[in-house]
Computed example of a mutant assay.
Amino acid sequence: MEYRNLDLYPEFDTLKALPRVDLASVLTETRIKDYSIPLPEGFAFNYAASKVDEWILDSFQKLSDALGLVDRYANLLSGQIMNTGEGRMVLHHLARGNLGTGVVKNGVDLRNFYEEERLKAAAFAGKVHRGEILGSSGKPFQNVVQIGIGGSDLGPRAAYLALERWAKAEGRHRMKAYFISNVDPDDADNTLSALDLERSLFILVSKSGTTQETLANETLVKLRLEKAGLDPAHHMVAVTSTSSPLAQNPDYIARFYIDDYIGGRYSTSSAVGGVVLSLAFEPDAFSQFLEGAHSFDRAALERNVRKNASLLAALIGMYERNVLGYSSTAVLPYTEALSRFPAHLQ
């Protein structure tokens, strides 16, 4: 499928020529009610405060059709190469379910691969929760600590904080989760000092197995465990790729695998988020998390921009940046539980 700049499409010229919306004069109760799109799981996307009107929405539809945006999304779902810089597929959605034609690479059905890793993490979490896997001193684990950087930290941390209070209220909070990502050893020291190391399980997350910041924090953690008279090999698991140096390393209780087709900031649906969230809550809670995400993936196949919140939000963002000239976007959490969500997005 061909990719061309927006300014090569006459539909974009038409959009740019439309009159600007004076929001103060049009923001009425009727507009607030009408400019809303129902979403799965009881959510709604309200865009009444965006500077769009019916003419601009019509123009969005024509531009979307001309660009073939929903068709391109369907191609992504079926495994066509979307990361043109690295020549890779983009498959984070496949960790949540299959909406395309299926994706097979080198004889491996990648949907099955992601699902097998989810089930493996679920089985492991169940054994930890039942006390079948213990620390080196024979005590059950009560804390889980993720060691990672970038997407290996931001998404899982944001998801854990968003769901923590819900899990406690529902009686599904099983282990307290902590995160170590800062290369400043004082940050890791503050976290480790608050833990009962005998009852703490650590997850090392590095796709390549060579991420220097993550390995430096792993070394710090191992030294603290050894100083406490504990065997790190009985307190650590790894999330990595099958080709990394960590893949067959015996110094971990278990290893869970990811691949090159799920980017860091999109990896929470994979083992990067699945292991820590299954341990912190319950495996079924992580499954529900994936089901919810999958329902949003499905909703994004709608061709009508007035009914497709993901598509409309993207078009509004494009319009605000490329037509209205807005240079930045503010993401303002409405609850403390979402306090780490902006960091995940940026």
Rank of each mutant, 00 (worst) to 15 (best):
L6G: 04
A238P: 10
I262E: 02
V108L: 15
A233E: 11
E132W: 08
R174K: 09
Q212L: 15
V275K: 03
G68S: 14
P19N: 08
N217Q: 11
T28K: 06
R174M: 11
H344N: 15
A49Q: 08
V272D: 03
L134S: 03
R88P: 06
K120F: 02
D53N: 08
P185W: 08
L63D: 05
V205I: 14
T211A: 08
Q346R: 15
Y9W: 07
R298K: 13
H344I: 04
A254H: 01
A247P: 07
T219Q: 15
N5W: 08
K222Q: 12
S64K: 03
T219W: 12
L8Q: 13
R265F: 09
R72D: 11
M82N: 03
V323R: 08
A169V: 12
T30V: 09
V103D: 05
L77Y: 00
D260N: 14
N143A: 05
K139L: 10
A66F: 04
E226H: 11
I262Q: 07
A228S: 13
E170G: 07
D7I: 13
A216D: 14
F281H: 00
A314K: 06
F341N: 04
K105W: 11
S328M: 15
L39W: 05
L67I: 07
S241F: 07
M82A: 14
Y73P: 02
H294I: 02
L161Q: 04
L315G: 03
Y252G: 06
E11W: 01
A188I: 03
A343P: 04
V128W: 00
D71R: 11
R174S: 09
L204C: 05
Y326Q: 14
L77R: 00
F281E: 02
T30S: 15
N249D: 14
